[in-house]
Design a protein around this nucleic acid. Sequence first.
DNA 1: TATTTGTTATATTAGCTATATAACAATTTT
DNA 2: AAAATTGTTATATAGCTAATATAACAAATA
Lengths: 131, 131
Amino acid sequence: MFIQIEPQSDVPIYEQVTRQIMEGIARGEMKPGDTLPSVRNLAADLGVNMHTVNKSYHELEEKGIITIRAKSGAIIRSTEERALTPEQLRQIEKNLKPVVVEGMVLGATVEQIEHMMKKVFSDLQIPAEGV
Amino acid sequence: MFIQIEPQSDVPIYEQVTRQIMEGIARGEMKPGDTLPSVRNLAADLGVNMHTVNKSYHELEEKGIITIRAKSGAIIRSTEERALTPEQLRQIEKNLKPVVVEGMVLGATVEQIEHMMKKVFSDLQIPAEGV
DNA sequence: TATTTGTTATATTAGCTATATAACAATTTT
DNA sequence: AAAATTGTTATATAGCTAATATAACAAATA
């Protein structure tokens, strides 16, 4: 699998897993309807505990990104199913705020932050076929 | 002071202090050259421990936002002193990435995120005189 | 039927957050 | 010069989170 864990990071392992699965979805490497590997399999692949992966999956479910079918598996929800609620928009803005504020205080311009934002976006864009 | 602590938040107190001081600087309520209150005074104001505020100040120093003069006080650095190093740009981008990725996966467009970013920016802009 | 699945429970270790006290030495104020 | 204030350092404690380890359960799947 495409997930790489950094044990020394200040970002918790379960959070690293969550983020990299989201990246995989954003990149189009994983599509809606796809099933995630079982918590035991992924945990074994990554060399981490089952519960750590389980926590990550439940975090993804809370965010509305996957659906966990008890005793069966986890499926990536379609973009139609997850319709970007006002609550989710508020959450994104809440996450965005401290990052933008820090950027401002350090002297970054709106254009610089905008540029970084678009760079992140395009870097994750679904690559053209055969690339 | 303008800082409001939410004890129930999942954001650590020292991090709340750091963020709200950054907001104060972004808003122009605190200007370069200004001294921050002593760790003991601010801690008393907020009803938290001295070490909690001290941790926040050191976090701000690590970010390059203030200078701590040992046994004297903490001063807000000027924008000229902190020249937005490549390292800082990388840090901002690193902070920005997971937020943008989550927004993407939830179905937000570049325009939506851009709009939120600019909203945060303008909300913190230095208000016109006498407003 | 046997295997795999997420779930639940218990226990342990490690690290972080936050508080509490206390003392030190340099700076600043009186 | 004396007193007060300052950040620093040290020790200790309590609570919480992260992560691991085992184990058993019941439903789903092969």
